[in-house]
Simulated scan of single mutants.
Amino acid sequence: MLTQTSFQGKLNKTEDLFIPFIEAGDPTPEVTIDLALKLQEAGADILELGIPYSDPLADGPTIQRAAKRALDNGMSLQQAIELIPDMRANGLEIPVVVFTYYNPVLRIGEEKFFKLLEEHGAEGVLIPDLPHEESESVRELALKHDIEYISLVAPNSEERIQKIASEARGFLYCVSTLGVTGGENQLSSEVTDFIQKVKEHSPVPVAVGFGISTNEDVQMIRQHADGVIIGSKIIRLVEAEVENLKDDSKRHEALNRFYENVRELVE
Rank of each mutant, 00 (worst) to 15 (best):
Q4M: 15
K250M: 14
A254W: 10
L37A: 05
A67K: 02
T192I: 09
R65C: 06
I230V: 15
I33N: 00
V238Y: 09
E239W: 09
I235K: 02
A154K: 08
H252V: 05
D16I: 04
R160E: 06
E264F: 06
E260G: 06
A122Q: 06
E253W: 00
S188D: 14
H120L: 08
V238F: 08
R169V: 07
A66L: 03
P155T: 11
V242N: 11
G50W: 09
Q196L: 14
S54Q: 02
N12E: 14
P85D: 06
Q196Y: 13
L152F: 10
L130H: 10
P128L: 05
V96S: 02
Y149L: 08
V206T: 14
E15F: 08
V153P: 01
L116D: 07
E140S: 14
P131Y: 12
G91V: 06
I150P: 05
E23F: 03
I84R: 03
N90D: 13
I212W: 00
L187D: 02
N261G: 12
L39Q: 05
S202G: 08
I33D: 01
V218C: 01
K68H: 12
I19H: 05
T14C: 00
V31R: 05
L49Q: 13
K233T: 00
P155D: 11
G179H: 11
E134H: 10
E118N: 15
T181P: 05
G170D: 00
G170M: 02
P128V: 10
L106R: 10
E82S: 01
G231V: 06
T62P: 00
M75G: 09
A58Q: 09
E167V: 00
F194K: 09
S176T: 02
L117T: 04
I235F: 04
L57M: 14
S6A: 10
V125R: 11
I108P: 05
Q4K: 15
E267F: 08
S188T: 15
Q78A: 07
E200K: 15
H120F: 15
L11G: 07
L35T: 04
G43N: 01
D217P: 00
A67V: 03
I195P: 03
Q162A: 15
P29Y: 02
R222N: 14
F114N: 07
V153I: 14
E23Y: 04
T192S: 14
L172A: 00
L92F: 12
Y259A: 06
A66D: 03
R257C: 06
I161C: 09
I195K: 02
F171E: 03
T214I: 00
V238G: 01
Q162L: 11
R65F: 12
T177W: 03
